[in-house]
Design a binder for these strands. Structure first.
Lengths: 218, 218
DNA sequence: CGGTGTGAAGCCTTTCACAGCA
DNA sequence: TGCTGTGAAAGGCTTCACACCG
């Protein structure tokens, strides 16, 4: 009989670190490493060994005492828990500097995400190619997002357009949003949103310039 | 006599939110709003009113009971605490998609950061213009970073180059790094580093696709 | 032995609830 | 009266330390 699944709830903080462990494991896999101890994994991910063991214990029991974790098995298990066993479809709204850069960014496809649409309101941009996707008219967002079965929307518009875009994609059935516009976007319950503000990242770094920064990743 | 400064240490979690409040305050300032209550500010920033009051209490006493916070005064105080009263000089290492997009991104200059250099190893890119900066040879990093008095370095290279770049800029005197390369970069004590991995952001969103996401910002 | 999995302790963060001031 | 500033309580996360197993 297969082993029972781990406890039902994974702490938010742990969820945010699982992709980091996955990245390290994939590198190790590519390098042909068969097993990794919590110590090794911790070192490569930049966290503590106790943290690794506690985090992984939420998935169940995937290590072997005296040996460590099986790289292949753990890679598969974390990927499965993160919902990465199916290809996720991404739409980018806003074909400016950032939107275009993200559309061409290799790091998405190599991790199993596929950019299926990119939108803009500027008639000069509509119809032009970005990577291997054509920029579509933002007015067609509702229909295209639905027909292309978009799972995740990236908002790379100027701040004033962000809330409207979010409302539109949520209306079209999207339930995961990554917002790069420097403004707070609110969504109904049941929709996940993460905000990435590059200016804020610099401002946080600015704070710690004079002081002693708390170890490594601020 | 001027009022005494607030308590000496600001919690890390608070520091990470101050730039968010600053963003809201600047918008309010631009709109001509004179004062904001913790309730209003909380609503616009997407946090709770209690959180706002607790966070701001670490700066000292800048509110007026019965009224709220003076927008201009609080804007200045938070900016000062974040070290934003002087212009900070930014270098971008890696003139690929992302590096070029960031070099042209208006959100940095509008917030008081100035991109003073952009580097790449590719001879085809060296000498070309990105925004109003010329791409410099990465071998010149140590000298240019020092002579341009770079405060913050953005790493937008492929993963394999990231650690080398970090070592180089730290050697040239940089003490704040924002790393976009999908790999863990370690730095000596006294240097601050923040890691932004766009693939990880998508993977976190993926996790919450099936489950009920914890309120709003995951 | 070596290294995982885990209760318990400690620390940090958020929320509560209200005293106190404009 | 209205809203801030803040102790106290609650909750969540990280670290510790060791029992236990391969």
């Amino acid at each position: 009989m297969p082993s029972m699944p781990g406890p039902r709830t994974i702490p938010q903080a742990t969820v945010a670190r699982l992709p980091l462990y996955l990245r390290v494991l994939r590198e190790a896999e590519a390098a042909g490493t068969a097993t990794l101890s919590s110590e090794e994994l911790a070192h490569r991910a930049g966290v503590t060994a106790a943290q690794i063991r506690k985090d992984l214990s939420h998935l169940g029991s995937y290590g072997t005492r005296g040996i460590g974790y099986d790289v292949d098995q753990l890679t598969r298990e974390i990927g499965r828990r993160l919902g990465l066993d199916e290809e996720l479809r991404v739409a980018i709204v806003g074909a400016g500097n950032l939107g275009q850069a993200l559309a061409r960014y290799g790091g998405f496809s190599s991790r199993g995400f596929r950019v299926v649409a990119i939108f803009d309101t500027d008639p000069a941009k509509v119809g032009t190619a970005v990577g291997d996707t054509l920029v579509a008219d933002a007015r067609k967002m509702p229909t295209v997002v639905a027909s292309q079965q978009v799972d995740i929307a990236l908002i790379t518009t100027p701040a004033p357009a962000a809330q409207w875009v979010a409302d539109a994609v949520v209306g079209a059935g999207v339930r995961s949003i990554l917002n790069f516009a420097p403004t707070t976007v609110t969504v109904p319950a049941g929709v996940s949103i993460r905000q990435v503000d590059l200016g804020i990242e610099l401002e946080i770094l600015s704070f710690y310039r004079k002081r002693v920064a708390p170890a490594s990743v601020v």
